[in-house]
C-alpha cells in the first residue's frame, strides 16, 4: 500500500465489486443484489417448466414469492416460504453472509453467518409486488449466454483484470 492517502482514489484499476463464488445453479438459477432488493428466481421442485420469483427488500424486509405469471406461491404466509429460504441460502453462497446482510440492512449484520440467522433477523412481512421486473432481469441474465462471441480486441477490458486466484 502506498502511504499517500489519495492513492486508492487515483488508481485506474481497483476492485470495486468482489467476484462472486461459484455455486450449484440447478435449484436457484438466478440471485442478485439489485434495485434495493435481494431478488432471484427459484426453479419449481415439481414442474420443470415453472419458476418462482422471490425477493426481499432492503431496509423494510418486505418479501414476496410468486410464479413468473404472478400467481402467489402456495407456501407463503406471514413468514418466508421454502423458495425464499433457498434464495437466501444460495445468495449467501454466492456473495457471502456479510455482504447479503449489509445489503438488506439487517440489524447486527456482522453477526449473521447462516441463512437461518438471516431469515430470523428479518423484520418485515409479506409485501405483494410484481414479479415482472425481476423475471425480465433473469431473462436478460440468460441472454448473455446467447450473444455471439467476438474476436475484435476490447481495449476497455484492461480496466477489468481477472482476479480471485486461490489465496
Amino acid at each position: 500500500m502506498n502511504a499517500d492517502p489519495t492513492a486508492w482514489e487515483r488508481r485506474s484499476v481497483t476492485l470495486v465489486v468482489p467476484p462472486v463464488q461459484p455455486r450449484k445453479l440447478a435449484k436457484v438459477p438466478f440471485v442478485e443484489l439489485a434495485d434495493g432488493r435481494l431478488q432471484g428466481v427459484v426453479s419449481s421442485g415439481s414442474d420443470i417448466g415453472r419458476v418462482y420469483v422471490s425477493f426481499i427488500a432492503a431496509g423494510t424486509h418486505g418479501f414476496n414469492c410468486s410464479t413468473n405469471n404472478n400467481r402467489p406461491c402456495g407456501g407463503l404466509y406471514s413468514s418466508p416460504c421454502k423458495h425464499l429460504n433457498s434464495l437466501v441460502a444460495e445468495a449467501i453462497v454466492q456473495y457471502g453472509a456479510g455482504r447479503v446482510a449489509r445489503y438488506l440492512r439487517v440489524d447486527g449484520a456482522e453477526t449473521i453467518e447462516s441463512s437461518y440467522d438471516l431469515i430470523r433477523a428479518l423484520n418485515g412481512g409479506h409485501e405483494p409486488g410484481s414479479a415482472a421486473v425481476v423475471f425480465s432481469r433473469f431473462l436478460r441474465h440468460l441472454g448473455y449466454l446467447e450473444l455471439p462471441a467476438t474476436t475484435a480486441p476490447v481495449a476497455e477490458m484492461h480496466w477489468f483484470p481477472s482476479t480471485g486466484a486461490v489465496r
Partner: peptide
C-alpha cells in the same frame, strides 16, 4: 484477443 459475454456465476 477472444471474448465472450457471460454471467457473474
Amino acid at each position: 484477443a477472444v471474448s465472450a459475454t457471460k454471467v457473474d456465476t
